[in-house]
Design a protein around this nucleic acid. Sequence first.
RNA 1: GCUCCCAUCGUCUAGUGGCCCAGGACACAGCCCUCUCAAGGCUGGUACACGAGUUCGAAUCUCGUUGGGAGCGCCA
Length: 464
Amino acid sequence: MTVRTRFAPSPTGMLHIGGVRTALFSWLYARHHGGTFILRVEDTDRERSTDEATQVILDGMQWLGMTADEGPFYQTRRMDRYREVIDQWLVEKKAYRCYCTREELEELRAGQMAAKQNPRYDGRCRDRTDVREGVPFVIRFKNPLDGTVVVDDQVHGRVVFENTQLDDLIIARSDGTPTYNFCVVVDDWDMAITHVVRGDDHLNNTPRQINMLRALGTTPPVYAHLPMILGSDGAKLSKRHGAVSVLQYQEEGYLPGALLNYLVRLGWSHGDQEVFTLEEMIQYFDIKDVNKSASAFNPEKLLWLNQQHIMKAPVSVLSDGLREQLLLLGVDTNDQSLLEGVANILRERARTLKEMAQTGLYFFRDFEQYEEKAAKKNLTADAMPILAALEAGLAALTEWDAVAIHEVINIVAAQFNVSLGKVAQPLRVAVCGSAVSPPIDATVALLGKASVLVRLQRAHRYIA
RNA sequence: GCUCCCAUCGUCUAGUGGCCCAGGACACAGCCCUCUCAAGGCUGGUACACGAGUUCGAAUCUCGUUGGGAGCGCCA
């Protein structure tokens, strides 16, 4: 039997990392087993679903490279199918019309809560046979009245539910539209889903779904309920932490592989390994290594991992991302060799592509002004002759590379009988505007002779 | 309130009865390297929620307590 999994987000809110993690595990499981991954948009709630949220799902999945083998399917386009099953169930007496008003139900719930009972519909319309013309009604599924439902969950193990704790859930609203729990069941069946991988907030829905699957005469799929992801403060994920659109991470300069790597380690592990390539994730991923307990989102570790991936990424990936980030900062360049040079020199100094663009800005355009403390400390009268000697030495260079530049710096240091730092720092501030940069010889080399000489003169005027 | 789930360093986790007075990673501190910043290396502190039991032996099994989470919608 080939594995078929699905990711079924609802476009009622932005796709965030919680949803992405669910998608990832589901996708990984399918890929690991050479199976099929299906994308299904659960948009039956037409009031709250938005096109924007749908677009974020599509764009986000594409950015992350989690391509669907089938779909995207939209539930709103399958209404006829749901209607068909409901009508059939009505005929087979597996479902029934319920004329209870919302007020009535509210009263019932309140009474049960007060009596310390599990609030549930009492089935008062379950056996009525009359058809009331003109009176609004919903359609409920006849849940079994007794017995148990066993969920053999792949991550939680065996979970048993009593049917007496369940009730007759609504499968069609009074306006005739089908509801979530019902659509999921019909879809999973029609799409021949073999493994349902989803958040464990759905564990409680599972027995109801299994009962409906049975009513359909089919065998339920295998379930795997993943633990939730909490915010960094241990509370429910909210906008304060990471519950922003997944595309936000793209804008912030994260590599898709790094985000996925971070997410895969939330609730899953492969020994002590922390850094994974996509291929390794697919190769090693297995549901049996998934944890049961919820985990907290840790932005610091994401940052670290992103840097780990930046350090290993192909230079073209970095230069492309860097160019996009520079565009955001008002620099439009297609100088591929400069972009690649900067990417390589900054790859172990930037935790995000955005950081790379910010800290390497001076490679692309002259800096506005010197960083105050750095200039005060290094662009001094004492440094004046050193900078002048540097300028002369560099100007005379015919071979413009790091080795030759380093030689000039060494000679100047020897000439003035000072440490390397006494030469490198003033030079650094002169060409970068700050006291921090990659190794000065490589930096000067990458900057190019023309702009280095211009900036040295600028420093000269500044001191004078 | 009822039902279900969960419980190892601040955080992510390894660990499936002896290899664990608990290992790795992020973060933090110190040191090394060093032209600055990084990267890298080394060192350090901090955890098996609690209580009973089972066992020669428990982080690992059982029960209870406590704490956290989810569900209980004509939301998904």
